[in-house]
């Protein structure tokens, strides 16, 4: 799978049959108790939340949900959360901290929903407060980018002590289409944009944004989902064991994100 172009990986990451958050949850966890609602007036199905057991130990699981059928797609807004979804995630993260449960998140979204109600409801504030809250959690947080990691809407579930990424998942500041239309006023040049955006798992590993790339079978995750579940299972187990030895998980996470991006101290201009 080493010879795929970035644009080909974007297509794989968006393949409809690719395992999504619910598939990972059902394969890796037991005793699943689904938690709904932001307690402020709405349930946003585009963010899945549950308490479950991972190898016998209780954890909180969160993840973007795109839905399988067209009906589900519509209900989940194609995986584009509204502010209420992020506020539900915040509620469940605080709850996880209260009960000392590790948090595992699955990232798979084209981005936060750019709609009228979403803006009126404070999409920016909802993402910002998620980032702030997540950065300071005292429990272990592991995020796995399983498909599309689209912009702030993805990051709001990905401020983890570890950020893992499937080989053909992508993670970027903006979709290649959006990128091409901003830069060249031409969304049809998305493939070209993907090529220069550094959005593949390997690129992000080299940039230090991602801690581990989890290999996928030839042809993509959907061709042998079981193998992918097992690889993610092993990675989660290993990182969770490592993080359990970490004394100050909030400080660890702060330092991790504090180090993102090198600077130069120049005197001029």
């Amino acid at each position: 799978m080493n010879n795929l172009t970035a644009a080909q990986r974007v297509k794989l990451a968006r393949t409809p049959g690719r395992p999504g958050t619910l598939d990972f949850v059902n394969a890796l966890f037991t005793d699943i108790f689904v938690c709904k609602g932001d307690r402020l007036g709405r349930e946003d199905p585009s963010i899945f939340g549950a308490i479950a057991r991972f190898h016998g130990k209780p954890v909180t699981v969160l993840g973007h949900r795109k839905g399988r059928t067209f009906e589900e797609n519509m209900k989940c807004n194609f995986g584009m959360p509204s502010p209420e979804g992020y506020r539900k995630a915040q509620r469940l993260m605080k709850q996880a901290e209260k009960f000392g449960r590790p948090i595992i998140t699955f990232v798979d979204t084209p981005g936060a929903y750019p709609g009228l109600e979403a803006e009126a409801g404070g999409q920016g504030e909802a993402i910002a407060s998620s980032l702030a809250l997540m950065s300071a959690l005292t429990v272990p947080v592991i995020s796995v980018v399983i498909g599309e990691g689209g912009s702030g809407g993805a990051l709001a579930l990905a401020v983890g002590n570890r950020v893992l990424m499937l080989e053909n998942a992508v993670y970027s500041v903006l979709s290649p289409e959006g990128f091409a239309s901003i830069l060249w006023k031409d969304a049809s040049r998305a493939d070209e944009a993907a090529g220069i955006m550094k959005l593949t798992a390997r690129d992000l590993y080299q940039l230090g944004v991602v801690d581990q790339v989890i290999p996928e079978p030839e042809g993509g995750a959907h061709t042998d989902a079981k193998a992918v579940f097992e690889a993610v299972n092993q990675a989660l187990t290993r990182h969770l064991n490592q993080l359990n030895k970490e004394k100050d998980l909030a400080a660890h996470r702060y330092q991790k994100f504090r180090a993102m991006g090198a600077v130069r101290e120049e005197v001029e201009p």
């Binding site: 950065s135 401020v159 500041v173 550094k198 702060y254 993102m260 991006g261």
Partner: peptide, 24 residues
């Protein structure tokens, strides 16, 4: 975000928000 700095621009959102949280 600064498009030309891609994912590293995105990470500044987490970095700055984390700093504000500690300050707060």
């Amino acid at each position: 975000a600064r498009m030309q700095e891609g994912i590293l621009s995105l990470m500044q959102m987490a970095k700055t928000s984390a700093a504000i949280e500690q300050f707060s």
